[in-house]
Design a protein around this nucleic acid. Structure first.
Length: 275
DNA sequence: CGCTCCACCTGAACGC
DNA sequence: TGCGTTCAGGTGGAGC
């Protein structure tokens, strides 16, 4: 599911429910997620207060008052539900649950079990193997056209592959890479090392825009992505190319949107508008 | 090292 | 209705 905007939307919901609250009960119903949930997981975090909810790329970071940090990744199909009071019986994919001292229940459901939970010392965040290699956040002042051009220098991979690479820029996934390349009129098959500075100057702001718009509309959402309140996000209705194979290009209106496969994933683009 | 491919897992959608 | 096939947002390890 979730690319950066969806994770940011989930974080916003978690902030309201969790910041300043104490994790009174922690329940793990299945340990076999993408990374197994450690045996001592519950004991290490039960009773602790959540100081802050942060986001790095697609990772949710929960800072606890003991100096530990809970890292959560939603994988492809993970979602967080926030429920007040006594929750209904869990269904088969509700794997992890927190009950706070405010009687708020936070439920993690993940049918495909690609998500994971981890606990590290807050001071070790930048050494974490998952976080260490990440490139800049798209909203960082350091994410500029000159940065992007130099990060792509000599790369023979395609633009699609390069923008999916979290070491170049963190947080983009399949949908927003498709949308950003369309808006910047850059072909997904273009060799990344050949990107001109002018094209990079178009690309950087549209990446920021497309993510900001998705966050503003409540996190994109796919078929099965849900916000923490269980409502679907709205941005799915605004995709210009993603999932629109065969439709007329919204820009030139004469050519049809094509679907190709790159790195085993669908790419959608207009062959006329994107060079 | 850079790059591509594939596995991980389940469910939804579609074709016959 | 039912069965088989294909596809899905991410990540990271294998292998070239």
């Amino acid at each position: 599911m979730p690319e950066l905007p969806e994770v940011e939307t989930v974080c916003a919901g978690l902030r309201t429910a969790l910041e300043g609250a104490r994790l009174q009960d922690v329940t793990v119903r299945r340990h076999d997620l993408r990374r197994p949930i450690p045996e001592d997981f519950v004991n290490r975090i039960r009773g602790q207060k959540v100081l802050a909810i942060k986001r790095r790329s697609k990772y949710i970071l929960m800072e606890l008052d003991s100096g530990l940090c809970l890292i959560v990744h939603l994988g492809m199909s993970g979602c967080m539900r926030i429920l007040q009071g006594n929750p209904p019986p869990p269904d088969k994919h509700d794997h992890v649950e927190f009950m706070t001292d405010r009687r708020t229940c936070i439920r993690f459901a993940d049918p495909r079990r690609f998500g994971f939970f981890d606990i590290i010392e807050a001071g070790e965040l930048e050494n974490d193997p998952a976080l260490r290699k990440l490139g800049p956040e798209p909203f960082d002042p350091g994410f500029t056209a000159p940065y992007l051009k130099s990060a792509l220098k000599n790369k023979t991979a395609t633009m699609k592959a390069a923008l999916m690479d979290q070491r170049i820029v963190a947080g983009l996934g399949n949908i927003y890479v498709n949308e950003a390349l369309f808006r910047a009129r850059i072909s997904p098959t273009k060799k990344a090392g050949k990107l001109s500075l002018v094209a990079a100057q178009r690309l950087v702001p549209v990446i920021v825009d497309v993510l900001n718009e998705a966050i503003a509309s409540g996190g994109s959402s796919l078929r099965d992505h849900r916000r923490t309140d269980g409502e679907l996000g709205y941005f799915q209705h605004n995709f210009q190319v993603y999932g629109r194979a065969g439709d007329p290009c919204p820009s030139c209106t004469t050519s049809a949107i094509r679907r190709i496969v790159q790195q085993g994933r669908s790419t959608f683009y207009c062959r006329i508008c994107q060079k």
